[in-house]
Simulated assay, not measured.
Amino acid sequence: MRRALMALMGTAAGTVLLVGAKAGFSSPSSDPALQPQSAQSPVPGTSAGPSQAPPAGADPTGAGAPGASPAAGKTTQPAGTKTTAPAGKPATTAAKPPRTTMKDGTFNGNPIYVDYGNVELSIVVAGGKITDVKVLDSPSEHSRSVQINNSALPKLRAEALAAQSANIDTVSGATYTSSGYKLSLQSAIDRAFQA
């Protein structure tokens, strides 16, 4: 709180000095009678002419404003103390590492809308492997969709069991069903790894 107040006072004093310099007024700190003796005498080897004047808004004494301490805007601390960062978020424990094998059980995939209807699957995992893929929903509103799915779904199931992943080939003539099958299968596999 104290640092914030000092920083605010230093900023206000700097703003007043900058506005005064722009308007052509002299600040009390630039009056030689008000400066400490050390600020009035030039540093050896330099001249204190107008070319050496500090830039507008700069405070040669570091005082900032009348009545302000020379350390306004600066922080000092006793020798031998350590500086620590302000308290932020508390340290969190490391997240549980992802599973490297699927958990045993039955996991439903997301229902995926494709042209002509939804495709939704569930997988059965035993011993960390997919042992069965069940179709919970598939396009069935049109007789042609039923005919295509009766041919495509067993092929997709066999490929999924062989690959043990959703990285399977699309069945020719059943592009929509195949894409929905892969997406629903992948979401079920993801759930098996996250369980």
Rank of each mutant, 00 (worst) to 15 (best):
T83S: 11
Q40I: 04
N108Y: 11
P90V: 04
A166R: 02
G128P: 08
E120C: 03
F107S: 05
G127L: 03
T61L: 13
T177W: 09
G20A: 12
D115Q: 07
I168E: 00
D31T: 06
V43I: 14
Y181F: 15
G173I: 03
T100Q: 13
K96R: 06
A71H: 08
Q40T: 03
P55M: 06
K96W: 02
T175G: 01
P42K: 13
K22G: 13
I189C: 00
S165K: 02
Q37L: 11
V124P: 00
A23Q: 14
T83V: 11
G57Q: 08
T175W: 02
A188Q: 05
A85G: 08
P139K: 03
T83W: 09
A65L: 13
P97K: 13
P55H: 02
I130N: 07
A12T: 14
G57L: 09
L5Y: 13
Q37A: 13
E141Y: 11
G20H: 01
A33G: 12
I148Q: 02
V43R: 09
L17H: 10
P54T: 07
K129N: 13
P66N: 04
G180H: 03
F25T: 09
G10L: 04
A7Q: 13
K182H: 03
G173V: 05
E141G: 15
S151M: 14
T175D: 04
Q186I: 02
S29M: 13
V124Y: 01
T11A: 11
S145V: 09
E141M: 14
S69W: 10
V125K: 00
P55N: 03
L161T: 01
A95D: 10
G67P: 06
A188V: 07
D132E: 10
T101I: 02
Y181E: 07
A4F: 07
F193W: 01
